[in-house]
Design a protein around this nucleic acid. Sequence first.
DNA 1: TATTCTTGCTTAAACGTTTAATCAGGGCAT
DNA 2: ATGCCCTGATTAAACGTTTAAGCAAGAATA
Lengths: 356, 356
Amino acid sequence: MSAIAAALGVSAATVSNALSGKGRVSPELIEKVRAKASELGYVPSLTARALRTGRTGVLGLVLPDIANPLFPQIAQAIENAASNAGYGVLIADSRGDIAAQTEAIGRLLERGVDGMVIVPRRGTRIADVGCPVAVIDTPSTPGNTVSADHWEGGSQMGRHLAKLGHRKVLLIGTSASSNVQNDRIGGLKAGLGAQVECDTMWIEKVEAVSGEGCPLGLADKARAGFTAFAAVSDLSALRALTELQRAGIGVPETVSVTGFDDLIWSAVVTPALTTVRMDMATIADLAIAALIRAIEPEGEVENGAEEVSTGNVTSETDRVPMQLIVRQSTAAPHAGGISNLHAQTPNKPTAGEIIS
Amino acid sequence: MSAIAAALGVSAATVSNALSGKGRVSPELIEKVRAKASELGYVPSLTARALRTGRTGVLGLVLPDIANPLFPQIAQAIENAASNAGYGVLIADSRGDIAAQTEAIGRLLERGVDGMVIVPRRGTRIADVGCPVAVIDTPSTPGNTVSADHWEGGSQMGRHLAKLGHRKVLLIGTSASSNVQNDRIGGLKAGLGAQVECDTMWIEKVEAVSGEGCPLGLADKARAGFTAFAAVSDLSALRALTELQRAGIGVPETVSVTGFDDLIWSAVVTPALTTVRMDMATIADLAIAALIRAIEPEGEVENGAEEVSTGNVTSETDRVPMQLIVRQSTAAPHAGGISNLHAQTPNKPTAGEIIS
DNA sequence: TATTCTTGCTTAAACGTTTAATCAGGGCAT
DNA sequence: ATGCCCTGATTAAACGTTTAAGCAAGAATA
């Protein structure tokens, strides 16, 4: 910067003002400074700026378990939104226990992040950590900034299955302590309506008895009359799908299987999974916008409260609709029921029809 | 820091020296400074330090497509290794074209990262970007810093299949332009040996003709005598597995299916996938260690070359062995061949036996 | 014409560290 | 006893910005 100033015979402060458009600088000088800057390939030192302004231009991203298959979607959306807003994204894995989450947050704080996006570990409440925080969890959780409307997504799926004619549905969740999963299940039940019989299976409970990765006994369930298996995550749906197929039960002609989240494999398995997708791009945009509102000074208002607020930020809307994607894993329950195995239906293209 | 200095009646410089152990400070004063520092809850400003030293303590992580299902493993391992070394990790998604990758690298550079880890987009060579770079690709690619030994992994899998008695194997890849996939396929062929007949299917080519997500026609292949389908990624393996199951072909009693990478779902599908896993923790450790060697001054050597080298860094070893994980999707080819459909074998626990 | 406002720029301080250079004093050898 | 080295500290500069305050000169106002 001083090089530009010297080359133009002005002071460094003027160059700064010219580039930021803050002080009073003549238009022609601004132009000259701009020209010289790009001529010299000037890149402002974000470090120095950070030191002076106290803002680093970096946001932290804290995830409960970075190995979560949903992570790519989240990270990509957040990175994109942040990057559009001129921010960088520092990741912190809070793998393991709650202590690790706290420690991860601490590391980010030390690095001087201006704010952070936290997808909290199940059942965790985020205390005021000393910087603005956007929480992506579920609308039913207090402190949530913005998230997918899991309940509504569940209800879309429920209506889809009910409309196909299913009357006995098994809901499959992983952990009963997950707010997200409970919301999805609540929505499913509501969407299925009162006349549909449903039962809920929590995989964690089954595994506590029979060991991790054990068979879920879904073939028996099918024989018991369940015609649809609605998992609240695509991973469980995949598990259900392959277990049923392995047992020789045809999907979708005998039973239907549905998932949640539209994970990477949903479209490529056979039959392609009917699922419901979060609009992560919108969620990320809202979360980042809310954060930035808390970080950057208002400008308009001249109140004394120049302090950056330091708690959970809020968004205009705390829930964004989900998108039902109907593929080949759902169909009307066949009258023949379980007896009609392996009737081959031609594979239609898998892109999926987006409903709603 | 000045608060500590004032409280102890010494200068700020002394405090700095005491905490960093650099200058000459009396042992008892060091102790007092330490005590006061933790009493006051002193947290050094990494920003100021960065300004002064020119090093930010932040590494960049550039991924070809953050939505890649392998990403969680990579990000987690890198974050962990970096964090252990006292570095933060800034992510940059280079989704889209090569231009996006360059632009992502530029953003990281502006933020003053001390170095970066790049998993290059297929076929990309990383030019000298102005900071140390660790490239994680494949040993056969020039410029590679460290990566899994994909060829060796393929050969392990090949030997496993050959030993089971398979004599006609279909190798399934996504893109013929991927160095990683070619290495894996090369290894597979070598491991299978000369007496095993094999053919290679590239999904991209099939899809170019029949559309994305189209059936791969594997049932026909099975009828043509292929008894094993070795995909070079778990995603393709999953696609193969479900397509075969859907066609009523039993895995593993009729044909075997194998994958690569041990992605999250490999253990939970039925039958659980036999696959081969990268040791990302070791790879990440080596990559980060190599980076840090380039970043941090040698200390010992008193040569004038204080400059940080600015190209691709190298590691002691550029390839780390893969780990064959045998689960339920592989078995000896049944003498009866394709006719013997749906023979049920009991589901064994899915944890997987780790070989080698 | 004398005063005040406005414009366009400069000066200087500040952000919180690190580090080279300096300095006072005590022990040691000459 | 004088000069020298070593120890344990201090001083001051520097990193590259931002920004409040100051200032000179021309324009507008009285």
